[in-house]
Design a protein around this nucleic acid. Sequence first.
DNA 1: TCTGGGGTCCTAGGACCC
DNA 2: TCTGGGGTCCTAGGACCC
Length: 359
Amino acid sequence: MAKKRQRIILHVDMDQFFAAVEEKERPEIRGKPVVVGADPKEGMGRGVVSTCNYEARKYGVKSGIPITRAWRLCPNAVYLPINYSLYQKVSARIMTILRSYADKFERWGLDEAFLDVSSRVKNFREAEKLAQKIKKQIYEKEGLTCSIGVGPNKLVAKIGSDFKKPDGLTVVRGEDVKAFLSLLRVSKLLWVGRKTENKLNSMGIKTIGDLASYDTSILVEKFGAAGTQLYLSAQGIDNSEIQERWTRKSMSREITFEEDTSDSNLILETLDAISEDLHRELTASNFTFKTTTVKVRYANFETHTHGKTLLFFTDRLRDIQKIARDLVQAYLRPDRKIRLIGVRLSNLFSTKKQMRLID
DNA sequence: TCTGGGGTCCTAGGACCC
DNA sequence: TCTGGGGTCCTAGGACCC
């Protein structure tokens, strides 16, 4: 009866990826505060900070804050728009390196990945060596640093990579998991965001240790199925596998107007343009769809969605445009200004896959 | 602090079928 | 006539991730 061998998982997280790539591309901005995100427009811009470097963080700038606030905190920073195609290229090269070290590999966004290295190393000591090797190779090939967490599962590896940044390496062996987690704030757990953290705090739960010793039945009562998940996470238990293949479930586009508007012509034209854009991507990636959903956000941030599912799959532009226009009608009111509109296509079906099945 | 854009997953109610 | 239970799909909203 062979005991199932303990898994060894790495989570690799590139440090301030967008800002770091920009700094590498433009030596002249190195050492200065760099903010990647929406156009600040001299303090009048809409949108948020996507990523910033450590120089900018010294001024209080961070991911997710309104760009106008970043402008007030640090007007002298270098403000750059998001250049996705550049980051995608760099990301693809890094992911190729990472994949070569893993039995199983899962990309998480452009700048993170999970690696199952269980069969490549004998123990955590070797895993640490491997992580060092990976960091060295990425730095030599791309001039970028990353932080790596090594643990017995995805949850612990992910929390580990966040523990010491930038250019960090944190190894948490199975027997050390509880002690490692217990003093961290509950928000460090995956899936515990602002809302859940507030709710937990109001129950007197601040640290992961608090959560681990809390009455499970009360957690289930308050959070439903998620309560069980919370409890298991707090114990450092996570049996989820690295997901090698990912199938797209939906594709969407949305736009925030430069100024809130109730001009129905402008709104419908924008909706048509969004539909065209989506249609281009849909056909380029060989998908058909059944469901169209329109999203409207009013000036006061009140947000609504309205969707419709067809009885058949389609990839025609005129279907997207007609349904989107029909669905948005209910929200076009002269007395209400709209801030954002968007369209999502879901119930996707890959026609490429179908061809393979037929072959 | 006046809050982007691209996604995934979950929940809860209702329709509908057997 | 006032009634069950299981299953699936659709819809709207919300939490969360990068």
